[in-house]
Amino acid sequence: MSDFTTWDILRNLLLATRWTLILSLTSFIGGGIVGLAILFLRIGKSTLGRHFARGYVELFQGTPLLMQLFLAFFGLGLFGIDVPAWLAAGVALICWTAAFLVEIWRGCVESIPKGQWEAGQSLALNHVQQMRLIILPQALRIAIPPTAGFSVQVIKGTALTSIIGFVELSKAGTIVTNATFQPFVVYGFVALIYFAVCFPLSKFSKHLERRAAAAYATR
């Protein structure tokens, strides 16, 4: 058996970090697209669509992400697909991310004064046009800080995918621990790497928030 130096441990963890980053990015972008589609249902005119969107959010925000991962992992298998861990991880994280983004963005859209919709109506814009030309551009500006803040939750969420066998930073931590018997050092490093990725994002989102708040205050 070869000996692991501290550098070996760190190098292996850093190599695995890219999978955490790739999965986070995929989930965030995929979740954003799915979230936007469900957002339109949530604030749309169809009652059925609104109910569906509310049920969706309730379901994914009311159950553990870990359960969603297990269900994706074993559930997709029911369709006769041989499910690789990355697929189950991606599907579950996208659905989970979407549910949270819908609620964040709904808040942003609803914070736009009703008069803006009415203004659009008086210009004979239809619902989609009002949304696209008047509401979304304004809501988008409000949405950026909380969305950036939520990206931290997504990155932390990817840690759970190690449980269904996706090899990212946390799984690498477990593997390296099993090889080195140094859990204190290894999990300490794992935590620090997560921190190094998440902390700047948190700070950035705080900064955006403060800037947005200042912009409102000076109006």
């Binding site: 932390k156 969420g157 840690a159 449980i163 794992v190 935590a191 921190f195």
Partner: peptide
Amino acid sequence: IRNTPFMIQLFF
């Protein structure tokens, strides 16, 4: 704590 996953805190 806010910038690391709960699972890693637990494992640590």
